[in-house]
Write a protein that binds this DNA or RNA. Structure first.
Length: 574
RNA sequence: CGGGCUGUGGCGCAGUUUGGUAGCGCGCUUCGUUCGGGACGAAGAGGUCCCGGGUUCAAGUCCCGGCAGCCCGACCA
């Protein structure tokens, strides 16, 4: 491609509001332009990257036995009512009506549609398994789009859906998809980690998220440097047993024999203030968190230096539902004094505690009385616990649940997810098959997503420097960036001629080349080449032409060398 | 949806406090010089100052009402 003809304008200044590297650089390099909040146009350069990511995904999906198709983006809302997901999604889904007032939505995902189609086509166990996918635009009316393409309202996603006679068969395909995903992200040059994840709106049981490790990621990833344990912080656990941390020095200060003692702590509803006032470590305080448990009230107990993992609490009390108290709720429950709740508060239906509380210890905790706490609260003597469950949010250094080594926490961008769905959609949409005994069963499903446009963001986050993007070879819009330094005088024609010739030879040899044939100064051309980030830059100037050489620079490493002009195209093809 | 903020040539911004008919840098056009890391000179083009109402002799600026976008939080792939 001749740059003089390319639809491209690079930006010298950082666009306002583009705060993260990928957003800033994709805009500056002319890959994308914003059209509305969370909606982006893909310009020619960006389009080529998007297409390359999509092609890698396509190749790996095909190799894993999935079949590509295309589903409509606009889908009848009626299908979503049948699976009850119209309500589940709520305002997160874009909705519209046609001229006859029939309701539609813009697809955020496609379980309902694909399951309906499969239900109409396949009836026998002989037809299964089947794995179908599409690469198509998806829509979510996010509360707050941000970070450019990372949290957009329109995004390109590969979504696959597999149908099986039973869970064992599903597991085989699930593993195939898991392996295919690892190949995709490896080919995209991402540093990634598969982690145990939460299922969100899609539902289902077993699932893994593929996380591209990045500072700007929106998810916390708990992972073990010693073994392969890794999980989204929402579902991450620490190794814990009853009696855990026995003899820990932070618990040594108080004796179990001392009597319960009420102390005056005026205007100190927070852990930090109480700990300071009483000269205790925050870990010596017992935190009591009130929540609604169906019709009753529950208390969650954990050490004062720990945070509650709400997802863990919800899971621990399932199938009952838990919802944390908000300020208004305390008025209806006078036995619970906000900021001064004790584990023995009245009117509590369930006291559930993290195992960290089980160590023999005299706690400082709320007195269930405004402006008062108590010292020396002892488990079994002064308060009781009905249920034990992991409730605390994991922090770095906690023991790994698999091997006990200290855990690390880093940020990640979710670029893919695989689910074992079960029969939820097959049942709702009537996708049944007939087995050898002529009996009908709902198909067992899996679904598998990859955020194509989000991968582009993750790749730029990982592959850039202060000058611009440093595309991995597999995703670069062009293989090489040829810069002609034409200079002046009689050499100008010679350099242009030599550069034209090299460009044509490379193109003929199957190398994709972005050829800077513009009438611009060398500084401008070099700066743009750095910004656009092709993996290899070829420079041809008057001196080089005179000596019969072309210079080559590796964008990522900065390494330079020279090649003879004669036969350069053949050498560069390899 | 709470909190903070911004809408002025393609991009980045000043001008709004104190109302007087729009400016700077980059980019763009033409000519000349220059030509290996964002050159220089000269001459130009380009603006419904987000939209609608109001106040005023006069509104980018003041008042009222909308809309859009950004950041923090809650939420979420």
């Amino acid at each position: 491609m001749r740059m003089s003809r390319l639809f491209l304008r690079t930006l010298r200044d950082d666009p306002a509001g583009a705060d993260i590297a990928s957003h800033r650089l994709l805009l500056r390099a002319g890959c994308i332009r914003q059209v509305a909040s969370g909606m982006y146009a893909w310009l020619p350069l960006g389009q080529r990257v998007l297409a390359k990511v999509a092609q890698i995904v396509r190749e790996e999906m095909d190799a894993a036995g999935a079949q590509e198709m295309t589903l409509p983006i606009t889908q009848p809302l009626e299908l979503w009512e049948r699976s009850a997901r119209n309500d589940d999604y709520g305002p997160l889904m874009f909705r519209l009506e046609d001229r006859k007032q029939v309701k539609f939505c813009l697809s955020p995902t496609a379980e309902e549609v694909i399951t309906t189609i499969v239900a109409g086509e396949l009836e026998s166990y002989r037809d299964l398994p089947v794995n179908l996918y599409q690469i198509n635009w998806k829509y979510r009316d996010e509360l707050r789009p941000r970070f450019g393409l990372l949290r957009a309202r329109e995004f390109l996603m590969k979504d696959a859906y597999s149908f099986h006679v039973d869970v064992d068969d599903l597991r085989r395909t699930y593993q195939d998809m898991f392996d295919a995903y690892s190949r995709v992200f490896t080919r995209c040059a991402l540093t990634f980690r598969p982690v145990e994840g939460e299922s969100g709106e899609i539902g289902g049981d077993i699932n893994h998220e593929f996380m591209a490790m990045a500072e700007i990621g929106e998810d916390d990833i708990v992972w073990c440097p010693k073994c392969d344990y890794a999980a989204n912080a929402e579902v991450a656990r620490r190794r814990s047993e009853q009696g855990d941390e026995q003899g820990d020095e932070k618990h040594d200060g108080a004796s179990g024999d001392a009597a319960l003692e009420k102390v005056y702590t005026p205007g100190m509803p927070g852990i930090t203030a109480v700990a300071q006032h009483l000269g205790a470590a925050e870990g010596e305080l017992l935190k009591c968190i009130a929540f609604h448990l169906d019709d009753g009230v529950g208390l969650a107990l954990l050490p004062g230096d720990r945070e509650l993992n709400e997802a863990a609490l919800r899971k621990a009390v399932a199938p009952r539902t838990a919802r944390l108290f908000e300020d208004d709720d305390f008025a209806a429950h006078p036995g619970l004094v906000k900021g001064y709740i004790g584990p023995d508060a009245s009117g509590v239906a369930l006291v559930i505690s993290d195992p960290l509380v089980s160590a023999p210890h005299a706690w400082v905790t709320g007195a269930n009385d405004t402006d008062h706490h108590v010292r020396n609260a002892v488990l079994g003597r002064d308060f009781q616990v009905a249920e034990w469950a992991d409730l605390v949010a994991v922090v770095p250094g906690d023991p790994c649940p698999s091997c006990g080594s200290p855990l690390s926490i880093d940020r990640g961008i979710e670029v893919g997810q695989v689910f074992q769905l079960g029969t939820k959609y097959a049942e709702a949409m009537g996708a049944l098959y007939t087995d050898e005994e002529s009996e009908q069963h709902p198909m067992v499903m899996g679904c598998y997503g990859i955020g194509i446009s989000r991968i582009v963001t993750a790749v730029v986050e990982e592959h850039h420097d202060e000058l611009g993007i440093t595309w991995p070879a597999a995703l670069a819009p062009y293989d090489m960036h040829l810069v002609a330094i034409t200079g002046k005088g009689k050499a100008t024609g010679e350099v242009s001629e030599a550069a034209d010739k090299l460009y044509e030879e490379l193109t003929a040899a199957g190398v994709s080349v972005l050829y800077d044939d513009r009438d611009a100064s060398p500084g401008v051309k070099f700066a743009d080449a750095d910004l656009l980030g092709m993996p290899v830059r070829l420079t041809l100037g008057a001196k080089g032409v005179a000596r019969g050489v072309v210079e080559r620079r590796n964008r990522k490493t900065g390494e330079d060398d020279e090649l003879p002009l004669e036969g350069a195209a053949a050498a560069l093809r390899g």
